[in-house]
């Protein structure tokens, strides 16, 4: 899972900044324990057709402060459920960042990039590198620490602890 390829859904300009958890999955759909049901509403306020276009392995690219607002864990879960393989942003809201790791959705921060909608990216989580196969440009992302990659590899914090009982940093 450390290296993979995926197609980009890009949200840029003002639309790509401060995408809050209510826009990733509106609060009214989250009073459920059935995570599959989230798929029908993911990103619907900002991109109503996203749920139809998204394919397994696709990549979301956004701007500043992705995932701000309420602390709901269903936001990264909804993205994972529809097959998103990694979210790339200039930076993430703090609680979204840890929730994503905890539920097994990889995140990369790239402060400056020129990645556009439909681009196909090669992602290496261990190296923290992202190559745009259309332009050939490689971007350096913030590197994820090994333990986060380990948590991700197990599918999240609960699964990790089920397997290891504890963990050592």
């Amino acid at each position: 899972m450390a290296t993979f390829q995926g197609t980009v859904h890009a949200y840029s300009g003002a639309m790509g900044d401060n995408i809050d958890t209510d826009r990733i999955i509106p609060g009214k759909y989250t009073k459920t324990l059935d995570v599959q049901s989230l798929a029908a509403h993911v990103m619907e306020d900002i991109d109503p057709d996203f749920k139809n276009r998204v394919k397994q392995g696709d990549i979301i690219v956004a701007g500043d402060n992705f995932g701000c607002g309420s602390s709901r864990e269903q936001a990264p879960i909804a993205l994972k459920v529809v097959g998103v393989s990694v979210v790339i942003a200039r930076y993430f809201a703090r609680i979204f960042f840890r929730n994503a790791i905890n539920i097994g959705l990889p995140l990369l921060e790239i402060p400056d990039h020129n990645i556009s909608n439909g681009a196909v990216l090669e992602v290496n989580l261990l190296e923290g590198s992202v190559t745009d196969t259309n332009t050939g440009i490689t971007y350096k992302a913030t590197k994820m620490p090994q333990v986060m990659i380990d948590i991700l590899a197990e599918g999240g914090l609960v699964a990790y602890l089920q397997k290891h009982g504890d963990y050592v940093l």
């Binding site: 602390s71 709901r72 609680i95 840890r98 333990v147 999240g156 914090l157 504890d166």
Partner: peptide, 18 residues
């Protein structure tokens, strides 16, 4: 610190958080 369900559950289980 504010967390969500997974972190709180792990802390409730073993008294720790990353």
């Amino acid at each position: 610190n504010a967390v969500s369900v997974s972190d709180a559950a792990v802390a409730m289980a073993i008294g720790k958080c990353w």
